[in-house]
Simulated assay, not measured.
Amino acid sequence: MDHIDEKILTILKKNGKASATEISKVVGLSIPAVAERIRKMEHGGIIEGYCAKISRRRTGYNVTAFIMVNMERSGDVEEFREKIIQFPQVLECHHVVGAFDYLLKVLVKTPDDLEQFLMEELNEIPTVSSSQTFMCLSTLKEEWNV
């Protein structure tokens, strides 16, 4: 990957629907050359896919929360992992080092929905020993890609 590929990726990060024609004008390559570079990055796994960036507020998802989770030391971590990835409310799940074992980023419509997720979903996983929740008031910066 060279600086031209990086320029192409920067353009695609801002607009996943940018055409090879539009990109070629910015990076100074022919349309077929740009298309070939994109194809190689797709086949090489650098570009994993394309998706729409959806407005959370306009779709009613107004509550973002970060949940720090501790696990039972003798518990089955695979059970937690299998269950947590099934919850549509969980946008991200990271195994972390420090005072907690996992960090979750959760998106729901209302504080009541967050309470329901905590009480009826997360706390019902037997291997979860404790959690600490932080509700997001506002987001100053959020990147969707590298």
Rank of each mutant, 00 (worst) to 15 (best):
Asp2Val: 11
His3Ile: 10
Lys7Gln: 15
Lys7Ser: 09
Leu9Met: 11
Leu9Val: 05
Leu9Tyr: 02
Leu12Cys: 05
Leu12Gln: 04
Leu12Glu: 00
Leu12Gly: 02
Leu12Ser: 05
Asn15Ile: 12
Gly16Trp: 11
Lys17Asp: 12
Lys17Cys: 10
Ala18His: 03
Ser19Glu: 07
Ala20Trp: 01
Ala20Leu: 02
Glu22Ala: 12
Ile23Lys: 00
Ser24Ile: 08
Lys25Met: 01
Val26Leu: 09
Val27Ile: 07
Val27Asp: 02
Gly28Val: 04
Leu29Asn: 04
Leu29Ile: 07
Ser30Phe: 09
Ala33Asp: 05
Glu36Val: 10
Glu36Leu: 15
Arg37Phe: 11
Arg37Thr: 08
Arg37Asp: 02
Arg39Thr: 03
Arg39Ile: 03
Arg39Pro: 00
Lys40Glu: 08
Met41Trp: 01
Met41Ile: 08
Met41Asn: 04
His43Glu: 14
His43Trp: 00
Gly44Pro: 07
Gly45Ser: 12
Ile46Val: 15
Ile47Trp: 06
Ile47Lys: 02
Glu48Arg: 15
Tyr50Thr: 07
Tyr50Leu: 09
Ala52Gly: 05
Lys53Gln: 12
Ser55His: 07
Arg56Met: 15
Arg56Asp: 03
Arg56Glu: 08
Arg58Ser: 09
Gly60Trp: 11
Gly60Ala: 02
Gly60Gln: 00
Tyr61Leu: 14
Asn62His: 13
Asn62Val: 00
Val63Thr: 09
Thr64Trp: 07
Thr64Asp: 06
Thr64Arg: 06
Ala65Cys: 04
Ala65Asn: 03
Ile67Ala: 03
Ile67Glu: 00
Val69Met: 08
Val69Cys: 01
Asn70Trp: 05
Met71Val: 12
Arg73Thr: 12
Ser74Leu: 11
Ser74Lys: 13
Ser74Gly: 10
Gly75Trp: 07
Asp76Trp: 09
Val77Arg: 10
Glu79Thr: 13
Phe80Trp: 08
Phe80Thr: 01
Arg81Asp: 09
Arg81Lys: 15
Glu82Ala: 14
Glu82Gly: 05
Lys83Leu: 14
Lys83Asn: 11
Lys83Asp: 04
Lys83Ser: 12
Lys83Tyr: 06
Ile84His: 04
Ile85Cys: 08
Ile85Met: 10
Ile85Trp: 08
Gln86Gly: 03
Phe87Gln: 04
Val90Gln: 05
Leu91Gly: 09
Leu91Ala: 14
Glu92Gln: 14
Cys93Asn: 13
His94Cys: 04
Val96Lys: 03
Val97Leu: 13
Gly98Met: 03
Ala99Ser: 10
Leu103Gly: 02
Leu104Met: 05
Lys105Glu: 11
Lys109Arg: 15
Pro111Tyr: 11
Asp112Val: 05
Asp113Glu: 13
Asp113Met: 00
Leu114Pro: 01
Gln116Lys: 15
Gln116Asn: 13
Phe117Ala: 02
Leu118Phe: 09
Glu120Ala: 05
Glu120Arg: 14
Glu121Met: 09
Asn123Pro: 00
Asn123Ile: 02
Ile125Met: 09
Pro126His: 11
Pro126Gly: 06
Thr127Lys: 02
Val128Gly: 01
Val128His: 07
Val128Glu: 03
Ser130Met: 13
Phe134Ile: 12
Ser138Asn: 12
Ser138Asp: 13
Ser138Cys: 07
Thr139Gln: 13
Thr139Ala: 08
Glu143Ala: 14
Glu143Gly: 08
Asn145Arg: 09
